[in-house]
Design a protein around this nucleic acid. Sequence first.
DNA 1: GGCCACGTAGTACCGCGGTACTACGCGCCC
DNA 2: GGGCGCGTAGTACCGCGGTACTACGTGGCC
Lengths: 222, 222
Amino acid sequence: MTTVLIVDDQPLQRYGFHLLLDSVPETDVVGEAAHGAEAVRKAAELRPDVVLMDVRMPGMDGIEATRRIVAAGGRSRVLVLTTFDLDEYVHAAIRAGASGFLLKDARPEELLAGIRAVASGDAVIAPALTRRLLDEYAQYVPAHRGNAADDPRLGSLTDREREILVAVGKGWTNGEIAARFVLSESTVKTHVGRVLAKIGARDRIQAVIFAYDHGLARPNAD
Amino acid sequence: MTTVLIVDDQPLQRYGFHLLLDSVPETDVVGEAAHGAEAVRKAAELRPDVVLMDVRMPGMDGIEATRRIVAAGGRSRVLVLTTFDLDEYVHAAIRAGASGFLLKDARPEELLAGIRAVASGDAVIAPALTRRLLDEYAQYVPAHRGNAADDPRLGSLTDREREILVAVGKGWTNGEIAARFVLSESTVKTHVGRVLAKIGARDRIQAVIFAYDHGLARPNAD
DNA sequence: GGCCACGTAGTACCGCGGTACTACGCGCCC
DNA sequence: GGGCGCGTAGTACCGCGGTACTACGTGGCC
């Protein structure tokens, strides 16, 4: 039996979902919420297996509510529903930790299959959105990422050297690194020099590129 | 009516799929292939809506076959099937341009739904794989990517300056850029200087970071 | 015609970055 | 005890990178 919390600001919409979920034996609607804050509170209180979350709501929206429910660390999984397949929603929801993203015009069996999948720890994405997601994914995720992460050159670095490499990847000068790590600039130079030699980089610029390619530097991390 | 090409090295497996697809009116199996090369040839010849592709095959594997079929530019969409949910397969398939990825132990209706979705231009991922895909996606895709791509600083660059920035992002020295673009080093310096001023970077290192954050530089592009 | 944006090119100067080499203290292991 | 890896630090040197400024040809727009 899968317990479900329905979150939507429109009573009629909640009613529809409630009816649908009651029509099958495997799901049990344990509560409803009309906005984000109530959703967070009820999720903590009722500890449902799945939270059926609308994105657009007055006050705290579904994304923020998702973030908080996921951050709370309970076992509740969030399945986000929306009318529009706006990319921002999808991205934001994924980053917020949602386990799924479906369109409200999904067929009932799709919704039920989604709830089933989410409840069992899997994730679902509406086919119409998956297309774009895959395209972006292919763009962003480096080829042979696994190999890159396991690059033997990475393992040859000492902990300190890896720290230095990350700092270099942030674009810091030797002087800045020295200041932040409370070191002399000479020491930083020594470390940087060793890092360059180990990873086979000509200069710190290629070290920055190496850091990005190997996941040591993350966009917007600074 | 959706035309399907079945690709699998095991005759029994092909037979099973064939039976399943024949049991519903909406799909029409137009051909079978036992290995990658045959799949590529038959895809070009039969121009099916959907290619049901097994990953593990002797000779040319499903990934390579997928790459070629997609590269051929026809309207055929490839739905990859596998027994094991190995990450490498999923990544490789996505990069190869597959429109979907399902496990062979999927229930028949899931497979049919997948074929339907793929045929209509959407994409599907087995729920069991989607979970991991989303986790990685959230990690790799920068927040507010849309905003970053629309950075006004990017628009202020001239075409030439953007080319230079990309070259800088590859880690090339001014001398190398001059050589590859057939320019004097002075000119390159002038361009780089203007780029730095426009994007607000202190030095070329921060320009490299800027390039990565804004999608101008791609991992493993060089 | 004149202005402006752009791409091209040069000179001069300075400083950060990178290399080479040396050095020392600490903790660990044979 | 002696070696060794690691982190720390220094000196000396050189060159690439970045800045400032000037300059000129071309194409487009008023």
